[in-house]
Nucleic acid binder design. Sequence first.
DNA 1: AGATTGTCCTTCGTATACACTTTTCCCAGC
DNA 2: GCTGGGAAAAGTGTATACGAAGGACAATCT
Lengths: 228, 228
Amino acid sequence: MAEDLRDKLGAQHLPLRDQVLAALRTAIINGDYLPGERLTEDRLAEDFAVSRNPVREALRVAEAEGFVVILPRRGAVVASPSSGTIADMFAVRERLEALAARLAAERSTPADVAALRTLLEQGREATEQQDLRRVAELNSALHLRILQISGNPWLSSIAKALYLHVQWVFRLGAAERAPHSWAEHIQLVDAIESGDGERAERAALAHLDAASAAAYENAEGGYGAAGG
Amino acid sequence: MAEDLRDKLGAQHLPLRDQVLAALRTAIINGDYLPGERLTEDRLAEDFAVSRNPVREALRVAEAEGFVVILPRRGAVVASPSSGTIADMFAVRERLEALAARLAAERSTPADVAALRTLLEQGREATEQQDLRRVAELNSALHLRILQISGNPWLSSIAKALYLHVQWVFRLGAAERAPHSWAEHIQLVDAIESGDGERAERAALAHLDAASAAAYENAEGGYGAAGG
DNA sequence: AGATTGTCCTTCGTATACACTTTTCCCAGC
DNA sequence: GCTGGGAAAAGTGTATACGAAGGACAATCT
């Protein structure tokens, strides 16, 4: 039943539960499973062609990550981020990514900066070509890269999780803001390259503030429908 | 076998996996399971008098929370925080708790402040009586309460998780610093009561900086042995 | 001695069973 | 037609067993 998955990934020692978790996260972020939707274990097991056990383990982690809510004896439902938590998420992200920008500025090697510049260039091209999907990808890649350059694994993993949630809620809105966003990205990378932590932090804050404002505008009304 | 647990908590619909997770966290933080120690599923199942299933689910979440490391096909071991990650943890905590202090100052009700003052008073008493264990408890309670008052669930849950890890690594050191720490706490609560977010943030930063310095001093050498 | 083999331990995934709870739905009564 | 009760269905929570796969470690062979 799960042989296709097994042959493809099992050889790399990737436990099924991790594949299920990744697939579940993706499905939720993509809107395949909408907020509030009920996720019965049997159904997920069938969807992913595995037994209940890997599904259960993946669900627990997904709960810890905030993608699903599990009610005792009632099962799991896809989490429903409220507009309140959107502002809350950005408030935390702002602090975290500002710190990341500062650390990145202080610790980045020329190679790090070169990698960022490459992403910037690719982002410019994708923007020119109106390839919004790719722009969004590169957007993520840039932010994640800065997090990684910061060299703080806690910061990195927490901010990354937060970033995933932001993407989930504002997938479309974020893509539309892309062109404007890249101008800010250039400022940010310039600041990181300068090695001036203070300046990098300011650039990150400015970027996040703008993103937050844009996201909020796009949120008017429902965000659960962002997937469709 | 698990009847004692069942009768006590099962009636409250608390799944075994949650009990196991809580017990596991506590055991790790208390040093009952030392960093690097191997945690086989059978052993945990026996320790907690449950079957392997709840144990497995608890382990996955514990991994997501950073308390254990799971190697595919090799099993789980208690995580070993390195000195690098200690500084990293404090760097993130500083930003997060500073934000929490600001938000708490801006949003706290008189009742919130009263609750904090009660904790402060209890902390003073415990300090006088040299009851370091209780001081540490109240210390946690105070920080957690401020997080809660901030009204930002993301901030709260992330900072709480981080706080648990700090406690894990520096259980003893934190307790020893207790008396000095409470003077800073009073400053912090005063600032929160004033409603001045800027001031509260500064107080939180000062407190965290001092705690970080103290923790680092106490860390010299090994922290894995903190439990013993 | 060093490489190889073989055994054992443990995890990983599956399957099954069953108790208990929640939900659903039908039906009688108002 | 609507409400309330109660049985049936659905689903979770937990336990258990089993086979497969991988790694660790010791015994064996060259």
